[in-house]
């Protein structure tokens, strides 16, 4: 069993839903990202998504776009992100999922990326613009290295695509709550629950729901019918506002506890 599988299995045993957190690595610096990842882990985040900044993040809303710009300006590359994971892996309990666009990975080369990600201790990989149809090669390579490939599903995904994602995906499936780019919203979309139940009908893989999750009540609502809620832009916004201040780590821990309703 992979660490992602064990994590979701114990969440089910404990009858609680998990919290998945996203940050853009290198915003404001890779050193700060290391501190934040440890803080998230201590505060009880169940899965850590580590975003690889990319020059053209076309699936992201303004908050994560700005974070990518700051991370690129601080000199962050995919290689740097893998070094970060390698450095912090020993002190972090939660599984780490690398969250990237396709081009940085393809530029590094699939074989090199897989080798270095495995060596760094990356547990899962999610590629935003690599849908199931294009992902066969990467999934095979990652799987042989013991890394779970995680797929996104959307309210527009057909049953056929849900089945394919369930067959190819490992660890968990990431359900997108609504059409649109990443970013905080006021409420959980009605499409979301329907999508999760359509996924449940096809697979026993855990389902984490994200996009637009920004308040504790969203998390507790999602907890009733999904295995985990993903918070991205909300946390990235906290980092943007406190990135340079001395109490960044405390703010992040406080944010996670607030989202978890503790």
């Amino acid at each position: 069993m992979s660490l992602l599988e064990r994590t979701f299995a114990s969440l089910r045993d404990e009858h609680r839903a998990g919290l998945v957190t996203y940050l853009t690595a290198g915003d404001p610096s890779l050193a700060a990202s290391g501190d934040i990842l440890n803080a998230l882990d201590r505060a009880g985040a169940d899965v850590l998504e580590v975003g690889v900044p990319f020059s053209d993040p076309l699936a992201d809303g303004p908050v994560i776009q700005r974070a990518s710009e700051r991370a690129l300006a601080s000199g962050t590359t995919l290689a740097g992100v893998l070094d970060l994971v390698a450095r912090e892996r020993r002190t972090i309990k939660a599984p780490i999922v690398a969250f990237s666009y396709a081009n940085p990975i393809l530029r590094m080369g699939l074989a090199t990326f897989t080798r270095q990600a495995a060596a760094a201790g990356v547990d899962g990989v999610l590629v935003l613009d690599l849908p199931i149809d294009e992902a066969g090669l990467m999934q095979g390579e990652l799987s042989r290295a013991g890394i779970d490939m995680v797929f996104l599903l959307s309210p527009t995904s057909t049953t056929d695509r849900i089945r394919k994602a369930a067959a190819l995906g490992r660890g968990f499936l990431y359900a997108i709550s609504r059409l649109g780019v990443t970013g905080a919203r006021d409420s959980v979309a009605r499409d979301a629950k329907d999508l999760v139940s359509r996924i449940r009908a096809e697979t026993r893989l855990p389902v984490a729901l994200g996009f637009g999750v920004s308040r504790p009540e969203h998390v507790s609502e999602i907890a009733q019918w999904a295995d985990a809620a993903v918070v991205g832009s909300g946390l990235v916004d906290v980092i943007a506002r406190h990135g340079r201040s001395a109490d960044l780590v405390a703010r992040v821990e406080e944010y996670v506890r607030w989202m978890k309703g503790r």
């Binding site: 849908p131 149809d133 996104l152 527009t156 057909t158």
Partner: peptide, 12 residues
């Protein structure tokens, strides 16, 4: 070529 798009766009 190919079709490197976010999942939401795949079916449309």
């Amino acid at each position: 070529g190919g079709r490197y798009v976010p999942e939401t766009l795949a079916t449309p």
